[in-house]
Design a protein around this nucleic acid. Structure first.
Lengths: 178, 178
DNA sequence: CTCTAATTTTAGAATGATTATAAGATATCA
DNA sequence: TGATATCTTATAATCATTCTAAAATTAGAG
């Protein structure tokens, strides 16, 4: 059968109660096979080559659906753009803060971290995420060294902090009067 | 001296080569003392009460400057909004995927994870981030259980994946012809 | 203390990712 | 094959964040 190569993906979608559409198959298939942790825009552009006319809204909808069903994984980095990973197996990510490249990292010593006790302070852990921010090989020489380690202990403060206005006013007055 | 309570913060700013302004002092002071991991919008609203007229652009500028100097920390969660943490000590975060609350979590057993060997595949690690996504105590009962664990091994694929167009066309033809 | 240059703040516009909408197309199932 | 629920689409709308250029402020020299 010609469509045999997509039968497994179609079956996976059905097993999650999702309708099978060519858009979903191609997006999921794409994410499973790429290692580039693409953004929605990248998914759109690459899948568009296989399925011209696909809408960006469909890409967002599908990514959301697949993510909600645990078939893919969202990755949030310091760039304002969500990235997607078709590999839901246990692994960490090295994220380059310069070029925003995301590299898969597998290390058995982190496995213990992955499945912690399920309830902490009444919080039920669903997924553990280990991210190493840094600079990748190809970016290192481009970057100026600005590593400064500053650790300031936080004062004990349980309630939402609100500075006493009189103190602030007094200080501002001192600083701003001519 | 009236402004004594801000002298330490002013000194910290100066030691990082930053000019001392009332905006920076109040924002940094606010972040050090709150435990709410606020967004830029929340910082703006709360600091606005102490310093009416402060601009949102200043809040963003200041948060960026403080973050770049390691005085505060950005937290990226699955909500499209960056959160900020004035506590730069070693700790993890529990993030509720429902209400987006962020809870500090301290556990010595993760300390080993925090300072890994510095070079992996040429990648230089600057910061390690452990996040536990889940559902907080007050949100658990509101949520429908949709935990499905699906693990699909990724096929070995080194180059950026591109599906053969003829196969896709053939399949799409089968699926779409009347 | 005063002056000057460099830096910072500001308001508002611009950007860009993501989400909402409602109409049309498609998948599913009897 | 037909009915119905679901999905896709184009477009508009939203909203966090960044950009811009002018006004205000800081820091340091005199």
């Amino acid at each position: 059968m010609v469509q045999g190569i997509y039968e497994d993906i179609a079956g996976t979608l059905r097993s999650h109660g999702l309708q099978v559409t060519s858009q979903r198959i191609l997006i999921y298939d794409y994410l499973i096979h790429t290692r580039e942790h693409p953004s929605a825009q990248q998914v759109f552009e690459d899948v568009f080559e296989s399925l011209p006319g696909i809408s960006k809204a469909t890409v967002y909808n599908t990514l959301e659906v697949l993510s909600n069903h645990g078939l893919i994984q969202k990755i949030n980095i310091n760039s304002g753009v969500t990235r997607y990973d078709g590999d839901t197996s246990v692994h960490s990510h090295l994220i380059c803060t310069h070029c925003h490249r995301i590299i898969d990292y597998f290390d058995d010593s982190f496995l213990g971290l992955r499945v912690p006790e399920n309830l902490w302070n009444g919080f039920e852990v669903k997924r553990t995420c280990v991210i190493f921010y840094g600079v990748c090989d190809s970016c290192r020489e481009e970057l100026a060294a600005q590593a400064k380690e500053k650790r300031k202990a936080r004062k004990d403060c349980v309630v939402p902090f609100k500075r006493d206005l009189k103190q602030v006013d007094a200080w501002l007055t001192v600083k701003t009067k001519g």
